[in-house]
Design a protein around this nucleic acid. Structure first.
Length: 330
DNA sequence: AAATAACTCAACCGCAGTAAA
DNA sequence: ATTTACTGCGGTTGAGTTATT
């Protein structure tokens, strides 16, 4: 945690500060009432340091209004929300957390929060759910779906190209195997995967793979359907299904909440995951938009709650996840 | 108990923006 | 208009600490 002392060619000291140096800096600033010119401060205060080093030591460590200790859950949530809005603007983020320095928040993000989001399956850069790894989690279902001979590709291969059905099935299974192997390679298998560092982007893939290989209890297949009046407006697909553009929110996904069997719209806004009931949104086909009445039924849920919420396939689904894959990959 | 790997965070570096000369 | 000095910011480093093998 402490660097070994070294000296630059100029003779100025670098590395960790001693308690004596800290006291000199504190005494000087308290006596003057302010730091004044950082460049001239070290000479006047009797410190063999550059002004930059003094400024950093004061702003990141010695300042009296600095809050020390662990980040609270509220602070964590705030940092995640602010990061989803501002990105790596640590200085800006720190202005919203009194007593916390940009350096401290940056370190906390890189060592804790990034890892936390990855383990929850959320991309810490985009703050959206990682869809590539959910594809892996749904691998067995994809594999079973490959036996469906009614798909377009099967029809094409069998009827148009004259390839036998069993050959088609074998080819599809082989493709699935290749896909599985590629995904396996992207995940680092190590016995200590649970403690993977923030620099390891494969933490979630390790988690998914562990679940996949150790148990047959796989995450529920999440498919999409048209909304209540059957006028869905597809813009893109994801593991949550077809997304919708909303006026104030980037994307919405129609889902069914198994807790109360209600049909809801899941969307991501300003770093929050939000759920809206079917009563609180309507579809404008002309504008290819969903209009959301935010004041009525939209409620915010945190990312942890989202993970445990069992969002299941809708009964009136017109398209299955398999069909989406068919359209994309075949 | 020792070796190794992973994690933490204070401190440094370099760049960009701004003000003064 | 150009140069210089200074400050602030974000990315990175690396020694000490802790966890794992």
């Amino acid at each position: 945690m402490v660097r070994s002392p070294s000296r630059e060619e100029t003779g100025l000291k670098k590395g960790p500060w001693t308690p004596e140096e800290d006291q000199k800096l504190i005494d000087y600033i308290q006596k003057q009432g302010s730091h004044g010119s950082w460049r001239h401060l070290p000479r006047i205060a009797g410190l063999n340091r550059c002004g930059k080093s003094c400024r950093l030591r004061w702003t990141n460590y010695l300042r009296p209004d600095i809050k020390r200790g662990k980040f609270s859950e509220e602070e964590e949530k705030l940092i995640i929300n602010l990061h989803s809005m501002f990105g790596n603007k640590w200085s800006l983020i720190s202005t919203k957390l009194p007593g916390r320095t940009d350096n401290e928040i940056k370190n906390y993000w890189n060592t804790h929060l990034k890892k936390k989001l990855l383990l929850m399956g959320i991309d810490p850069v985009t703050h959206r759910r990682r869809t590539d790894l959910e594809l892996l989690a749904n691998f067995p279902k994809l594999l079973s779906s490959s036996t469906n001979s009614s798909s377009f590709i099967n029809s094409l291969m069998e009827n148009t190209l004259g390839i036998q059905a069993d050959t088609v099935q074998l080819a599809r299974i082989q493709i699935m195997q290749v896909l599985f192997q590629v995904l396996l390679k992207t995940a680092s298998f190590s016995s200590s995967s649970s403690s993977s560092s923030s620099s390891n982007p494969n933490a979630y893939s390790n988690l998914v793979l562990s679940n996949l290989l150790s148990s047959s209890q796989l995450p529920p297949l999440q498919t999409f359907s048209n909304n209540s009046n059957g006028s869905s407006v597809p813009l893109e697909t994801s593991s949550f299904g077809e997304s919708f553009q909303t006026p104030n929110h980037s994307h919405g996904f129609p889902v069914q909440n198994s807790e109360n069997n209600s049909k809801q719209l899941l969307f991501h806004s300003n770093g929050n995951n939000m759920l809206a009931s079917t009563e609180s949104y309507s579809v404008d086909q002309k504008q290819d938009q969903i209009d959301l009445n935010e004041t009525s039924a939209a409620n915010s849920v945190n990312a942890r709650a989202m993970d445990t919420l069992n969002l299941t396939e809708l009964d009136d689904s017109d398209l299955s996840w398999k069909d989406v894959l068919d359209q994309i990959y075949w």
